[in-house]
């Protein structure tokens, strides 16, 4: 065997945090725009959020090259879907496709940590959260990436998702209003960027509701 390089890894962690929150009639998806490697910042303005369908966006952190490949793959699959079915893929359908796509590379995984957010067929907000090899769950809110250990407990504390063990099953969507959710997202990122060196520079927020898709940005710490 030839290719034996001392100290070579096909992976890198380019950092970044992603958050998604689902409400009764909206979904907020957010991620910072810092791209780093080790202690280096590669660029301060790299979008981690990818619009996959009209009512479905994905925020991803991890290894940028894998994330890009994943986004392009899903984009192409969605084009094929549109040609065949003459409609946009629904968010739950895209969630399953993403899971399958990740699991397809189970033994050479895409090193990407994703949250998928959007509206389901009833127009209700939905969030799907993943691990790198495709196991996924529908939740009311989630966080992934380098700052997730700081963000997730904060969200748990503020949003208190109903236990999945409750019977009858309770809806996971958060009780917040849209603007409250957006404010919460801004707060968690401002907090995460205090301690997580891989989170910062700028926050990109995507809000999906019946009116369509809206983007907004706020600045984060640059250090």
């Amino acid at each position: 065997m030839a290719k034996q390089h001392a100290n070579w890894s096909p992976y890198d962690n380019n950092g970044g945090s992603c958050v998604a929150i689902a409400g009764a009639d909206y979904c907020v998806i957010a991620a910072d725009t810092r791209l780093s490697t080790g202690y280096n910042i590669l660029t301060r303005d790299y979008s981690k959020i990818c619009k996959l369908a009209d009512k479905c966006v994905m925020a991803s952190s991890g290894f940028q090259a894998d994330v890009k490949a994943l986004q392009k793959h899903l984009g192409a699959r969605h084009l094929i879907y549109q040609h065949q079915h003459n409609k946009q893929m629904s968010c739950p359908a895209m969630a399953q496709l993403l899971s399958n796509t990740l699991y397809y590379k189970r033994f050479f995984p895409y090193y990407s940590f994703n949250v998928l957010g959007g509206l389901d067929n009833e127009g209700k907000g939905c969030v799907f959260t993943y691990d790198a090899v495709g196991s996924y769950e529908k939740v009311g809110y989630s966080s992934q990436g380098s700052g997730s250990t700081l963000i997730m407990p904060f969200l748990d504390n503020q949003l208190k998702s109903p236990s999945p063990l409750l019977l009858p099953a309770q809806d996971a969507v958060t009780p917040l209003a849209e603007d409250e959710a957006v404010d919460l997202v801004k707060t968690v990122f401002a907090s995460a960027s205090e301690r997580d060196i891989y989170t910062g520079d700028k926050l990109e927020i995507v809000v999906i509701n019946a009116a369509g898709l809206r983007r907004e940005y706020i600045d984060l710490r640059k250090d």
């Binding site: 890894s9 096909p10 992976y11 890198d12 380019n14 791209l35 490697t37 590669l42 660029t43 303005d45 790299y46 290894f63 940028q64 090259a65 890009k68 490949a69």
Partner: peptide, 10 residues
């Protein structure tokens, strides 16, 4: 672009 495919514009 890097050796492992990390790419961006700036």
């Amino acid at each position: 672009v890097s050796m492992i495919g990390v790419n961006f514009e700036d």
